[in-house]
Amino acid sequence: MLEAHKLALNHRLRGVCTKIAAGRVTAICGPNGAGKSTLIRLLAGVLEPTGGEALMDGVRLRDMHPRARAREVGYLPQEPQIAWDVSARNLVSLGRLAHGDARREPVDAALAAMGLEALADRPVSTLSGGERARVLLARVLAGEPRCILADEPFASLDLAYQASLAQHLRTQAHEHGRAVVVVVHGLSLAHNLADRVLLLNDGLLHAEGPPEYALSPENLRAVFGVEAHWLGEPGAKVLSLAAGDA
């Protein structure tokens, strides 16, 4: 489906190859400045690469019409500032922009999927941070894209909202067959959320695979310079940290 081929942007990302699969949650992890946001923005077609290509079903994103691309790839930026105090429904309706229609059903379905029916007519300024995060994801869902890309959607959410948002993202991948890509800072969250992890370091893909492999103690030592190991059952993993020498 979505594919990075030697994807590069100046010195920030230096040639990343990977394939994003449908029906799975892929987490992009790595230290600050590793190129996580750059990679997801290139995959969303928001940035144009200086080298390599981002491809959708073999077609270069930059060759697609912006609206055709937008119908396939939904992108949730990192902590977007909502400029005007519109209603939740109006914000979610923006998801239909690339389709050029004002159909109510996808908007209603997206509001329902995020449990926002009761809040639909409220101005977004009256919503809590967690409710707002759900509205923003509902906006992406209303566009019915095949890929959902989210840049740190968990930042500034409390634990309960993190858990509920993680569940929503997993449902979108596993039950609706969408490709879900999420930039995640918290490695425990990434481990429990994702089916697959891309571990970036210094603009390059350091490791890629199931979380237990990509986030292995060896890889964490190499990338973050910390000694750490995993505790707990699959699906409830916790990272145990020892003081590193980095």
């Binding site: 019409h65 055709a68 992108y75 930026p77 923006l94 998801g95 922009l97 923003l136």
Partner: peptide, 20 residues
């Protein structure tokens, strides 16, 4: 006007929604 609506969420989001 529709593109201005998309800009409610910022430039990146607007681009991702297909705004040229």
């Amino acid at each position: 006007a529709p593109a201005l609506d998309a800009l409610t969420l910022g430039e990146d989001a607007a681009r991702s929604m297909g705004v040229d």
